[in-house]
Structure formats: C-alpha cells, structure tokens
C-alpha cells in the first residue's frame, strides 16, 4: 500500500478484512475444514459430555482409515476430471477374496490375491478410460457391476472355504498400540504422505493436474495422456484394495457387501475436501479432513436421539452445505 493514499474508512477496512479473510480461506481451505471438524467434535462432547476421549479419538481414526484410503484413490482420479465408481466393489472384492483364500493359501498370499484383483480391475478401468476413451462414470460403474457379479458367483464357490480374516489384518484394521494409537495408521500415514508428496513434488503428480486441467493442452505438450490415466486408475484400484483389506480387518469379517456403504462417502470426502470434480484442482490433504468430518458426522448422528429420516436429511444437508460453502469460497 502506498503512503500517499488517504486512510481507509472503517467500512472499507471491514470490506478489506472480509476480502482478506476470503483470500486466506481460499489459500488455507484445510484450516477452515479443520475448524469445522473441531466444531463437530466439540458439539459431540456437548451432546454427550465425556464422550470425546483418547479411546474415542483412536477408534474414530480406525473407522476413518478405510474411507480415507478410498478417498486417496478417488482424489487421484478426480484430479484428472474422472471418477471411480468401482472403488466400493473393488474394496469388497479385495477383502472378500483375501478372507476366503486365507485358509487355503496362507495369509500373505491371500492378501496378495486381494490386492492383485484390485489392481487388475483398476487396469481394466484405466484401459477403458485412457485407451478406449470410455466416459469414466460409465466405465467404472460398469466395472463395479461386473465385479459385484463375479463376486456373487465366487461366493457360491467359496462358501465352504472357511473364510477367515488373517490375524495380522485384524490387528492392523482394528487394533491399537500403546493403548490408543490406531494400528491402521501404519497404512494410512505412509499412503497419505506418499500421495501428498507425489501430487506436490513428483512429475507424475504434475501430470495429473495438467491432464485434469486441460487434456488437449497436455496432449499437445507431449504428455502421453493415456499412460497417465492407466496408471491413475491402477493406483485407485490398488488403494481401494488396501482399503478393503483394512475394512475386513476392522470388522473382522468379510462379506460380499463389505465396502458397499463407502462408495458415496468416498466421493463426498473428496468433494468436501475441495477437489474439483472437473479436475485439475485440489489435493489429498482436504480429502483426509473430509473423511474425518464424515466419520465424526456419523458418530454425531448415531448419538443424537432423532428419527432415521431426520438423520439422513441432516447428513445429506451438512455435506451439501459444506460443499456449497466451499465452492463459493474457492470460486470467488
């Protein structure tokens, strides 16, 4: 600001403050999301005093982990302007195949099988979207139906296979260390670090933003867009597989609808977290906070004494409200 300008009037100061706040909110969107998260936790503790304890935080993180890992894959795909509607089916397949093969094949190979199937479905998605140019929505929706169908057939074959979730998977998915540190953080923290670092610092991360921002420009600049997309969907499939195995560990059972309830939350977490569904903008940090907000929201809705339709409306309204408020802040 130059010294020759007259002193700003009080109302101008307020306007500038507001603009300043908006600018800061735009830059520090994660901060505003964290404030919302803390507010929700505080509300929970007001409704049921004493509920928020170390134990509660620990188990909330355990429940948020599979959603957070699913949202990692979803973030990577959404950054390119795509969407992966097969994440829930892939997570289910990975968890179920792992559990049903554990007795016959041994624990480690069973986990490997589960992840292999997840990556394979991701590869098919990637080829469909990247090479054959199928709309991501249709491609991944179709694949989720294909996977669910195969799983139903497989269940009939595997029903007498003594399905059991391996002990170490249960320990990772639902155990805690030193009393309160959730074990699934050994999966989630490295994944989060890798995704956040990869998106900010690696060449592949920049390619994802470039493809999402303007695929034609990216192609003209010499980016092999199809390769970027194939790798992207394989990563999303693999992350969904890891989430599914974590989820099987969390519930210590694997059924053929293991991950089904996570599809829409995985998308909501990313959108709340500020990643544009049109691609090119966003990041995984916001999705992590989005996943935590959704998990706390479910706790809140379980605790309040309200009829189910009211809970559903509230859940939807809060997601809508956050997403809308966020989009306004970001676009102004």
């Amino acid at each position: 600001m130059s010294a020759t300008k007259p002193a700003p009037s009080p109302s101008a100061t307020m306007v500038r403050c507001a603009q300043d706040w908006r600018r800061r909110a735009r830059e520090q969107t994660i901060i505003s999301l964290l404030i919302l998260l803390v507010a929700l936790v505080a509300l929970l503790d007001v409704i049921r005093p004493g509920m928020v304890s170390l134990n509660w935080i620990s188990s909330t993180l355990l429940y948020a982990a599979p959603l957070g890992i699913l949202a990692a894959g979803q973030t990577l795909v959404m950054l390119t302007g795509g969407i992966d509607l097969s994440v829930a089916a892939v997570a289910t397949a990975a968890g179920y195949v792992m559990a049903s093969q554990a007795t016959a094949q041994g624990d480690a190979r069973a986990v490997f099988f589960g992840l292999g199937i997840a990556a394979a479905v991701g590869l098919v998605n990637g080829i469909g979207v990247g090479v054959l140019r199928v709309q991501p929505l249709i491609m991944t929706l179709g694949m989720s139906l294909v996977v669910a169908g195969f799983l139903t057939v497989y269940q009939v074959l595997a029903v007498a296979s003594a399905a059991a979730v391996p002990g170490f998977v249960t320990a990772v998915g639902s155990g805690t260390s030193l009393g309160f540190i959730p074990n699934s953080l050994v999966l989630w923290v490295p994944i989060a670090a890798l995704v956040i670092w990869g998106l900010r610092r690696s060449g592949y991360g920049r390619l994802l933003y470039a493809v999402g921002d303007n695929p034609t420009a990216a192609r003209l600049a010499g980016v092999r867009v199809w390769e970027v997309l194939v790798v992207d969907y394989v990563l999303s499939g693999l992350l969904a597989g890891i989430a599914g195995i974590d989820l099987a560990g969390l519930t210590s059972t694997a059924t053929i609808d293991l991950g089904n309830s996570f599809l829409l939350p995985s998308i909501a977490a990313v959108v709340i977290g500020g990643t544009s569904i049109f691609g090119g903008r966003g990041g995984y940090g916001g999705s992590i906070v989005g996943a935590l907000i959704l998990t706390v929201l479910v706790s809140l809705l379980t605790i309040i004494d309200a009829p189910e339709p009211f809970r559903q409306v509230l859940y939807g309204a809060i997601i809508l409200g956050v997403a809308a408020a966020y989009t306004r802040v970001v676009n102004e």
């Binding site: 005093p49 304890s53 134990n55 188990s59 429940y63 309830s261 379980t302």
Partner: peptide, 18 residues
C-alpha cells in the same frame, strides 16, 4: 443397513457415549 462396518461404528460410538 445390515452393513457390518456401519454397525461396528455405531455400537462403538454407543459404547463410548457413556
């Protein structure tokens, strides 16, 4: 919703709610 993961989180929250 007959979903294990949903039920697990609900009962866990109820158990820590006091």
């Amino acid at each position: 919703g007959w979903q294990e993961a949903t039920a697990a989180q609900q009962i866990q929250n109820l158990l820590s709610s006091g």
